[in-house]
Design a protein around this nucleic acid. Structure first.
Length: 812
RNA sequence: GCCGGGGUGGUGAAACUGGUAGACACGCGAGACUCAAAAUCUCGUGGGCAUUUGCCCGUGUGGGUUCGAGUCCCACCCCCGGCACCA
């Protein structure tokens, strides 16, 4: 017998796996496939415990299915573009490319040390030009389809550094680098029309029901934010129309039933009518000044600000009554939602109510509760019965909504409409370290797609944090128009890094040797997609997953893939905590994965992380529990010398009670393992079952029972603690046991069963009866055993739950 | 505020479609081995009462359904995550 030496065993097996290329998927499409994917990491420099958890979970699943005979795709890559590389460049004067690839090399070694079964062939970084090439192709396709378009949008602008700032670079309204006050500046940006897919993105969530966490589905539904209602034009009276330079303005409401309660209208500060009034100086200086101040607030500030507005000296006409109603501008009306204008019903909307109170605007109730009194000290926002609403009076809200919309449609006043909270996806970034947008600006042809892909980044740049390096580069942006051959300029914006992560899972489906010719082969994606099991942090529940779903649908419509949804099943893992808080450098409560691997080995790290909590839950780090995991593996290894080598499973004759118990626990663990991968991923319970089995094996000394136990246990523990499992299984069985094992139902059977006896539901004692005992026999034994509790009492009911308990209901 | 998910020993957690609450670990206590310690092994470990056989209480709180509730229903409290002036 030898000592457990994790360093030696782990190194040995990692080398063997590497040499044998043990984790490459087969290129043929014959076997049943299993695509297991953990979200790829950003190469920040070192891995952290969150990564260890994510990749250990994915690895266990991948190894399980590989062992079960599936063709498994379990790839890894690097989400390699993004701001931290530029920040490092500013701080340490190191080129983003160098920094990124060095980090990747280091982190790859760290991941390797954990014994993760990734395909080596299919690894890539999203900053590889070969990846950009195809991303740029997609972007051009989308441009040609009109899915990518340009529109002005406001950005955070630092006047000192002459650069656009991301929200996280704005600290209390000031630039993170130079502390200059940040201003909002409108520039031309690129958007992807995700709103074209809003309805499908919403509908298809139903297909994921039961396969994705309900929480994530709910978050996506909220984010898309569908609402149905009435859309109509509020006409301005003629003097107002002249002043406003418009006949009227469009409004949207989800409460057409409250339309007779409209007492004013409100426009967003950015509304075209408001802009027109300012340009034509139709309002006095002071009012213009106040509107401009509202416009200058960014979204966050405006949210926190108090409701504010002013009368625009315009009157609109109520669409049904023709009454004149005042038009205001209000800071709580959002230009991005609906049409940037609302019909205000203060009696039945809290915001409108608050605003009306502040400015003394009339409040007119038109809905009353079905029962009880109307409280006129606040807005009544519930549905109810209409009154003072013309011919619609007396209707209930639901009915009135339909009737009023129908009436508007019939009279040509407005239409039934749907609105989404979801906005188009702003994909352009004024940064260096990203995928260049492959478009060229030509004086005579306008914006023209590049034909020679990929458009690569220039490397001779300096990143200082001032200005945009692509803009400042002396020659890079000078080019020829692909259409007319004349002088032209390249687009200097790069793409949001969420674009890269929106299709990386498709790239993996195709072997590296085709990467030059195609983004991925259709036959490969048809075989491998969708991803069968996706694993990642809940923090990506909305954006990454929504963008990936959108991208998949667009690629489908462009003929690249045949699926509607990219991720069949989703598992969102919980955070890793220490001392009750998320591990972070600033809190100083991090645990370095490398140190754990060095001290205890990768198997211990993996076992602890899967044992300490179910994957979906938060995991509290515990040094002593890590020790416990190490001790288990040590026992598992050392006791393996109680087993003798086998070529196949032995047959058993008569066995002692302990021997039978050991076999039973072993097969219970096997059964548990099958359940865990099929449903819950509760690795903690699978590990507990394996521990019970090892404890039971240790309570007997039949060498063949030991051998059978290790045949099964080293199989089911292989996904979790692969190195030691391979070591043991190789020595004892030549790894012949790494194949599906049937549960020996005979080992699970028992001749007698223990039943609890409860009197009036209260547990009193236990009885042991033969397995086949009839109900009458069981009751007889139970009554005898429970004699002292039922003596002199009347039994009014007898309940026997087979294999569980007996309940006697007594009276007196 | 709205939408999700949770509250079980000293700790991390188990408990299948209502059926012996606390599996498996960590920690702690006792013992064995040892000159001693570490390591390892064995036993014990929800709380309270009791000399023992035992008895009572116990899954956030209060009600309910049921022979039987951690599990189902109603009301409430607390914690976590997300969204939030979305008309």
């Amino acid at each position: 017998m030898s000592q457990y030496n994790p360093q030696q065993i782990e190194k040995k097996w990692q080398n063997i796996w590497k040499e044998q290329k043990a984790f490459e998927p087969e290129e043929s499409f014959e076997k049943e496939k299993m695509y297991v994917l953990s979200m790829f990491p950003y190469p920040s420099g070192r891995i952290h415990m969150g990564h260890v958890r994510n990749y250990t979970i994915g690895d266990a699943i991948a190894r399980h299915y590989r062992k079960a005979g599936y063709n498994v795709l379990h790839p890894i890559g690097w989400d390699a573009f993004g701001m931290p590389a530029e920040n490092a460049a500013i701080k340490h004067k190191v080129h983003p490319k160098k920094w990124t690839y060095e980090n990747i090399d280091y982190m790859r070694k760290e991941l390797d040390s954990l014994g993760l079964s990734f395909s080596q062939d299919r690894e890539f970084a999203t900053c590889d030009p070969l990846y950009s090439k195809w991303e740029q192709k997609f972007i051009i396709d989308m441009w040609n389809k009109g899915l990518l378009y340009r529109k002005k949008a406001s950005v955070n602008w630092c006047p000192h550094d002459k650069t656009v700032l991301a929200n996280e670079q704005v600290i209390e309204g000031r630039c993170w680098r130079c502390d200059t006050e940040v201003v909002q500046r409108e520039i031309e940006q690129y958007f992807l029309k995700i709103t074209d897919y809003a309805e499908e993105l919403l509908q298809d969530l139903d297909k994921l029901e039961g396969k994705w966490p309900s929480q994530v589905l709910a978050m996506q539904r909220n984010w898309i934010g569908k609402s149905e209602g009435l859309e109509f034009v509020m006409k301005l009276d003629s003097p107002s129309a002249q002043k406003a330079g418009a006949e009227g303005f469009e409004v949207f409401t989800t409460r057409p039933d409250t339309i007779y309660g409209v007492t004013y209208a409100a426009l967003a500060p950015e509304h075209p009518i408001v802009k027109h009034l300012i340009e034509t100086k139709a309002l006095d200086e002071e009012k213009i000044e106040r509107i401009k101040r509202m416009q200058n607030q960014n979204a966050k500030e405006r949210q926190q600000a108090e409701k504010e507005g002013l009368f625009l000296e315009l009157y609109a006409l109520h669409p049904l009554t023709g009454q004149k109603i005042p038009v205001w501008v209000a800071n709580f009306v959002l230009m991005e939602y609906g049409s940037g204008a609302v019909m205000a019903v203060p009696a039945h909307d809290e915001r409108d109510f608050e605003f009306a109170k502040k400015y003394g605007l009339p409040i007119k109730y038109v809905i009353k509760p079905k029962t009880g009194e109307l409280d006129t000290s606040k807005a009544y926002t519930e549905p109810g019965i209409l009154f003072d609403s013309g011919k619609f009076s007396g209707m209930r809200s639901e009915e009135a909504k339909r009737a009023i919309i129908d009436y508007f449609e019939k009279e040509g006043l407005g239409r039934r409409a749907v609105n989404y909270r979801l906005k188009d996806w702003l994909v352009s970034r004024q940064r260096y370290w990203g995928t260049p947008i492959p478009l060229v600006k030509c004086q005579s042809c306008g914006i023209v797609p590049e034909t020679d892909l990929p458009v690569t980044l220039p490397e001779d740049i300096e990143i200082t944090g001032e200005g945009n390096p692509l803009e400042l580069h002396p020659t890079w942006k000078k080019t020829r128009c692909p259409k007319c051959g004349g002088e032209a300029e390249r687009e200097t914006d790069t793409l949001d890094t969420f674009v890269e992560s929106s299709w990386y899972f498709l790239r993996y489906t195709t072997p590296r040797k085709y990467w030059e010719e195609v983004p991925f082969r259709k036959e490969d994606s048809d075989y491998w997609m969708p991803v069968d099991q996706y694993i990642g942090g809940i923090e990506h529940a909305i954006l990454h997953l929504l963008y990936s779903r959108f991208f998949t649908k667009v690629l489908r419509d462009m003929g690249y893939v045949s699926i509607d949804e990219p991720f069949e099943r989703l598992l969102t893992q919980g955070m890793v905590l220490k001392d009750g808080a998320k591990m972070s450098k600033s809190k100083g409560n991090t645990v370095d994965p490398d140190a754990i691997v060095q001290k205890y080995g990768a198997d211990t790290a993996r076992l602890f992380i899967l044992f300490a909590a179910p994957p979906q839950k938060e995991l509290e780090w515990s040094d002593s529990a890590v020790e416990g995991a190490y001790r288990f593996i040590k026992r598992f290894y050392e006791r393996s010398f109680n087993a003798k080598p086998l070529k196949e499973l032995p047959k058993f004759g008569d066995l002692s009670k302990e021997e039978k118990e050991a076999r039973k626990k072993v097969y219970e663990a096997l059964k548990k393992s099958q359940e865990v991968y099929a449903k819950s991923f509760a690795f903690n319970t699978l590990i507990a079952a394996a521990m019970e089995a090892l404890n039971a094996l240790n309570a007997q000394n039949n060498e063949e029972v030991w051998s059978e136990g290790y045949w099964v246990l080293s199989n089911i523990l292989e996904p979790i603690i692969p190195h030691v499992s391979h070591e043991i299984a190789d020595r004892l069985f030549g790894r012949a046991n790494f194949a599906p094992i049937l549960v020996d139902e005979g080992a699970l059977e028992e001749e007698s069963v223990t039943l609890a006896v409860t009197i009036n539901g209260k547990r009193r004692c236990e009885i042991e009866v033969p397995k086949e005992a009839s109900k009458e026999e069981v009751l007889e034994v139970a009554k005898e055993a429970a004699k002292k509790w039922i003596e002199g009492k009347e039994i009014v009911k007898e309940i026997v739950v087979p294999g569980r308990l007996v309940n006697l209901v007594v009276k007196g």
